[in-house]
Amino acid sequence: MPVSREYQEPETIQRILHQARTVAIVGLSPNELRASNFVGFYADRHGYEVIPVNPREDEIMGFRSYPSLEDIPKTVDVVDVFRDPSAAINIARQAVAVGAGALWLQFGVISDQAAEIARAGGLDVVMDRCFKIEHARYIGRMHWLGFNTRVITGRRPAHLL
């Protein structure tokens, strides 16, 4: 299913990455080999406050885990979703309800309905993109692995994070 480019806009992605402080990761796994754990580890390492959302765990990576977005007692800047696309719709409704800043659907979490709900609720939306890879593309060290960041600039960058 082709993903609309309007949910993959570089400006939106960079704005989210620069402005966000708290990242609620829905479906964060305690298993260090899972993609969600890679992203949680990376986000924590790069200064974001990681808030696990996983009803099956009390604590993940040393952070208290909440059963749902609505149980989180603070502002959520980004809702990062590692769940089945069908589950993303309800998560989008919750993200709107708690006043989150952005809904970020990871690789393969493709749901136009979820995206529409979040956008109608005033959230920025990113779909079928990885939070870690996009951070590394624009601010981090992705180019050290020979990946095509598509970043073209003659300016001296700030020290890479």
């Binding site: 400006e11 601010i139 970043v151 003659g154 960058p157």
Partner: peptide, 26 residues
């Protein structure tokens, strides 16, 4: 993290990318 006054990305041409891609200033 500072927002470095980022311009919107552009689809640069082949000659430009031949000179610049992968080689931002150190």
């Amino acid at each position: 993290m500072q927002n470095p006054d980022q311009k919107p990305l552009r689809s640069f041409g082949f000659h430009t990318r031949s000179v610049h891609a992968g080689a931002r200033p150190e």
